[in-house]
């Protein structure tokens, strides 16, 4: 090979790749508004992005899988934790993670900032990003309780605890995230109180830090309560 050939390998290699890349970048700009629901990208969402950046959230958490790996991915957190969940954690991380072995800093955000942040996270959770991350994938989570039950012959109640995110804060026989065990709940409360507690925790215990769970159907609530009662 001559130096001239080598030179042309360099020129053509670089130019072809760069042209392809620039062409696809232009096309990305053409498509991105539809993929990211840019019509819903309100001033509040933008304000939320600024809050996200102001408190450097992204150096502990990932967003779209980018950033720090020290804390959970926030792409679909809105679906996982809901508005109340996010508000509680951001406002009082020292309570939310009191029993966790990993802490989140208390950054004293104003209520307005938290509202914008939630709007931002809601918007992010709805963009069309190829159903990532897998642990929060709608496609995989849909029917996963039934699949788990059918496939492994496990209890539907336990599968619901997993599926509805209860185990993001609670723990059942060593499964789940934080050290707030559910085993004792069935012993401590009767079925009606348990239902009330899940629906609106503060109505039973006014110091409860758990956000109200109003996304459960009556049948699901029934199954969970029966499960907690039956296992004692």
């Amino acid at each position: 090979m001559s130096n001239r050939t080598a030179f042309w390998i360099f020129i053509l290699g670089t130019a072809s790749s760069a042209l392809l890349f620039i062409f696809l970048t232009v096309d990305m700009h053409r498509q991105v508004d539809a993929l990211t629901n840019a019509d819903k990208l309100t001033d509040d969402v933008v304000a939320g992005k600024k809050v996200w950046e102001k408190y450097n959230c992204n150096d502990c958490h990932t967003l779209l899988g980018f950033g720090g790996y020290y804390a959970p991915d926030m792409t679909k957190v809105y679906k996982r934790r809901g508005e109340d969940g996010i508000r509680f954690i951001v406002k009082e991380p020292e309570k939310a993670f009191a029993k966790s072995w990993r802490k989140m800093p208390k950054q004293n955000l104003s209520d307005a900032e938290i509202n914008s942040l939630i709007a931002f996270l809601k918007w992010v959770s709805e963009i069309n990003n190829g159903d990532w991350p897998p642990q929060d994938s709608d496609k995989r989570i849909a029917n996963s309780a039934l699949k788990l039950t059918a496939g492994a012959g496990v209890n539907l109640g336990m599968a619901l605890l997993q599926d509805k995110g209860c185990l993001s804060c609670h723990n059942y026989k060593g499964v789940g995230d934080e050290d707030v065990p559910l085993e004792k709940a069935g012993e401590k409360y009767d079925a009606e109180t348990l239902k009330k507690l899940i629906h609106n925790p503060q109505s039973v215990n006014k110091d409860a830090s758990m956000p109200p769970q109003d996304g459960l159907s009556d049948a699901e609530l029934e199954t969970i309560v029966n499960f907690l009662k039956s296992k004692n």
């Binding site: 360099f10 290699g13 670089t14 790749s17 890349f21 990305m28 990211t36 779209l64 990003n129 190829g130």
Partner: peptide, 19 residues
Amino acid sequence: LFTGIAGTGHHYYWLAAPR
């Protein structure tokens, strides 16, 4: 540069860029 420039695409899988 041939592999690296267009290879940037391996970061674009899950950020809502085209498939």
